[in-house]
């Protein structure tokens, strides 16, 4: 397998994640889309790391994993508290503020 195959896979994953964020209505699913985008970035980091024969990219992937975990903590706290208030996590129902 060539490097470009992995890069294309990373791009496809990133696109799927971005589309999920744009079209899905459930906050949890939207959040999963974001996580998918982060993992796509990780895959790209690892591929380039291998390509350059340089460890920096692998190091970056570890940092991203830790940060993503922290993000999950904060994100789920926000989503859960919102769910307990409203009994829904649909992002379409979040429309109290309008222009």
């Amino acid at each position: 397998m060539t490097v470009s195959a992995y890069l294309i896979l990373a791009s496809i994953l990133f696109t799927i994640g971005a589309v999920t964020v744009l079209v899905r209505r459930n906050a949890i699913i939207v959040f999963m889309g974001i996580e998918l985008m982060l993992n796509a970035a990780n895959l790209a980091f690892l591929t380039f790391s291998r390509m350059w024969g340089d460890l920096t990219g692998q190091l970056a992937a570890f940092f991203v994993m830790v940060v993503a975990a922290a993000e999950v903590v904060v994100g789920l706290a926000i989503i859960v508290s919102l769910f307990r208030t409203r009994r829904t996590v649909s992002v379409d129902d979040e429309n109290l503020m309008r222009h």
């Binding site: 985008m37 796509a40 980091f45 970056a60």
Partner: peptide, 11 residues
């Protein structure tokens, strides 16, 4: 996530 993906490509 966009920032990070961009960083990966610059790398």
């Amino acid at each position: 996530a966009f920032f990070l993906f961009g960083a990966a490509w610059v790398y």
